[in-house]
């Protein structure tokens, strides 16, 4: 099996689907000749031509509207929003239009668009590049929201997202792009959307996370093991819809939960996950469900970003609280 970074796995998934389906179109700012500012589309224009992989004028609202329109012509658009902090520019196209067309048309029209976009902190970007804004799209019925944490998951989930007949927002954590390699099959494969993955098994506490925080949870779990605490780490992979079945199964085993996200406490998915667990599994819980999240400010400028971002120590602290409750 090939060893790939997450960014390579994403390029591989795009190439796979460009090959498989001539209706797949990849476009966005700088995705053509430049191969994207992170090189996610490296080589794709040369391989598939400007008809299939192309630059757009600089306007996110335009990119969203174009994707909607192309899908009315039977295409399967895979637009890139250069950084997800720019999603405010394309909010109407995503939440106001693309998410609603299936319902609006009584099921006669749909927009199988996959928005790809980098996000996430810790890489010293300027303002409005790193924010965790998954909550803004996850709260919109009609959309699916996917956030991979490994190269293997990224490829399988992106292929599934592109093939899905409903619109998907596929968010790629910038810190994970090149920080490590993982095994990725060269052939095509899919990972079902809406299915979580148990990244580490444990019996004492369940850690629910997504994106880069999965790795912080794994690191915390290693540390906790030294103290004899076995943490189970669930990677949601799809944050809307969430895989409650996998979460509840784990909670029934561990009876203790900490939900971890990079987004602020008032944002993201944690509050939703907590409410779903407590509505369904309150009698299995030995302690209140705790959360780890960033403070309720705008994303910190680079000087303060390392302290602002939740880390594995914050996770260990909360785990100790639920264990010792």
């Amino acid at each position: 099996m090939a060893q790939m970074t997450m960014i390579q796995a994403i390029t591989d998934a795009l190439r796979t689907e460009l090959k498989n389906d001539e209706n797949v179109l990849v476009f966005g700012e700088d995705v053509g000749q430049n191969g994207g500012v992170f090189r996610a589309t490296e080589g794709l224009q040369a391989e598939f031509g400007e008809d299939r992989v192309f630059d757009t004028p600089l306007a996110e609202s335009g990119i969203g509207g174009l994707a909607f329109g192309l899908s009315m012509q039977g295409f399967r658009p895979v637009p890139e929003i250069q950084f997800f902090g720019f999603v405010y520019e394309v909010m109407d196209a995503i939440n106001g239009q693309i998410a609603r067309i299936r319902y609006r048309s009584g099921g006669t029209q749909h927009a199988p668009v996959t928005f790809r976009s980098p996000f996430g902190g810790g890489v010293h970007t300027p303002e409005l590049h790193a924010d965790s804004l998954e909550g803004l799209v996850a709260q919109q019925p009609g959309l699916k929201v996917v956030i991979p944490s490994t190269p293997y998951d990224a490829k399988g989930l992106l292929i599934s997202s592109i093939r899905d007949n409903d619109p998907v927002v596929f968010l790629e954590h910038m810190k994970l792009y090149r920080s490590f390699r993982g095994e990725v099959p060269e052939e095509e494969y899919t990972i079902e959307l809406g299915k979580a993955d148990v990244k580490r098994e444990g019996s004492d506490v369940t850690l629910v996370a997504y994106g880069a925080m999965v790795h912080s949870c794994l690191k915390a779990a290693e540390e906790l093991e030294k103290d004899g605490i076995q943490a189970e780490v669930i990677d949601l992979r799809t944050v809307m819809p969430i895989d409650l079945e996998t979460i509840l199964k784990s909670v029934e085993k561990t009876n203790r939960v900490v939900v971890v996200q990079e987004a602020q406490r008032q944002a993201g998915m944690a509050s939703y996950i907590v409410s779903q667990i407590q509505e369904r599994a309150i009698l299995h819980l030995e302690a209140p469900i705790l959360t780890v999240a960033a403070p309720d400010t705008v994303y910190a400028f680079t000087q303060a970003e390392e302290v602002w971002l939740p880390n594995y120590n914050d996770i260990i602290e909360k785990v100790n609280k639920v264990i010792n409750f």
């Binding site: 403070p295 309720d296 705008v298 910190a300 400028f301 303060a304 302290v307």
Partner: peptide, 12 residues
Amino acid sequence: PKQKVSDLIKNM
């Protein structure tokens, strides 16, 4: 002085 998260909170 290095910017702190507490500065950020105060500016919300």
